[in-house]
Design a protein around this nucleic acid. Sequence first.
DNA 1: TAAATCGTGTAGTAAATTTACAGTTACATC
DNA 2: GATGTAACTGTAAATTTACTACACGATTTA
Lengths: 284, 284
Amino acid sequence: MLLDSIRTQLDSLSKSERKVALAVLDHPGQTVSQNITALAKSAQVSEPTVVRFCRTLGYDGWHEFKLKLAQGLALALPGLNEQPTQDDLAADLVNKICSRSINTLLDLRNNLDPEAIQKALDILSKANKIEFYGQGTSGIVAADAQHKFFRSGVPTVAYADPHIHSIAAALLRAGDAVVAISQRGNSPSLVRSIKLARRGGADVIVLAPSGTPLADLATVLIPIDLIFNIDPYTPISARLAYLVVIDVLAVGLALQRGPEFRKKMQNAQKALQEFDLQFDSFIG
Amino acid sequence: MLLDSIRTQLDSLSKSERKVALAVLDHPGQTVSQNITALAKSAQVSEPTVVRFCRTLGYDGWHEFKLKLAQGLALALPGLNEQPTQDDLAADLVNKICSRSINTLLDLRNNLDPEAIQKALDILSKANKIEFYGQGTSGIVAADAQHKFFRSGVPTVAYADPHIHSIAAALLRAGDAVVAISQRGNSPSLVRSIKLARRGGADVIVLAPSGTPLADLATVLIPIDLIFNIDPYTPISARLAYLVVIDVLAVGLALQRGPEFRKKMQNAQKALQEFDLQFDSFIG
DNA sequence: TAAATCGTGTAGTAAATTTACAGTTACATC
DNA sequence: GATGTAACTGTAAATTTACTACACGATTTA
């Protein structure tokens, strides 16, 4: 990106232009919010020198340079560019947590196995009945999944209570499908329910770290191997990964059911939206 | 992102400001390279109207608006906004949905206002009682918030049922805090409850798109201006943004309560983890 | 029907960016 | 070693750009 381009061209710049370059590299975030006068001052050069610097890099002038820099920063991952302003807790917090979450998803994009997704979609698209089981935090993921699938026109149920899902699991038959969600993959009661489900002939899609007891019971395993941080103040960004996988499954299933089905759902959605405007929002 | 924020606020704009909005939406790419005069001309309004338009959207002026727009466009990578088609392989699906989610979070990182977060944290750290209200999809976010705050050692409650939260809201007093979560910002029953809460003297932190009825009722508004796509098969990645904001608040609150408190919680967490290994996982 | 509020454009002002020019330095040539 | 040339850099003026103050007109309210 732009900052890298500045770095590589550092040698071919004149003395004063290099001052500008270093000032920009030092505080890229500030640079985009400053005007040319402020940058000139902090680089201890004159304004025209800054303009010449921009031109040397191939831009029309200060405005275009600033714009391109801003765009580059929007995409850049943190840590590299800006040292966090230590005194500003909130800004630092926002930056760190967002960045960590982004990294989690980047990681997911690289490691999520499309083949497993495809197998899972095959199972789901043929299933008579789809149930989501998850406890604690994963119970929320399961509830989210139910919501998403429902909005995609696929009725499902989600259970977070061990007693309930063990009963539900015992009622499953061949042709039914369960999605078991667990961040640890070792919840005994969930494992028990999944065993019951399999005994009844149901297919089980597991979202859990690989190598866990739950993972071993899967018909299809979608492994989610992220660091589970012990520090309680670390945001549990792993949850985001689970939610995105659920997104993938919901969208994939909807697509697999074909465009007609899709059209029908769009209409339903539209009707719902008009309703919302007058009454209560279902969407929230 | 910004363009979506413009779309959602289209109704609350005046006639001339809407002209500006439409001109921007029509040619966002041109807008960033143009100056205010050119935009005013193509929207057939005067320059001050453009400035007022920028201010209405919450920006300092034309410069800031243009910069943010440029950053938003940089994130709108080509191909990402295309709807996934049925021909897509699972790999494509994974890639697209992950990328879209990543962009949502990049956007959030660029636009989330640390000042608003700080104000929210100030309120939360002083609050006697913290409640989360959200309906439908946002009800899940509220439940998630309750979970996270609980794990940070802060007892809270979350309500998704309109009747329940209206009763709860009526019982609030000065010194209490509500976090209202809404992806639309116009749910009548939620608005009603929030009005009750404010009447009782409670502070209200709102997570919703800016310019919405709910946003106007906030003591502190944390605006989340992301796409609300009508197509039901588009992943609702906005939810990720909400979850991350909740993360930020939960972690921030824990940090603000000091290191001793933090230590205590770490121990509690550790104990819980050991317990989990033998019995049922609380974490999921 | 009058008053008031909101929205909009005109014209003037302030600010920022760019251009023109001139002084300085570094290097090459005689 | 002196002189000329070319490249850099800053000062100051010019121009563009964004913003403010004010006034007119429309729409709403009393």
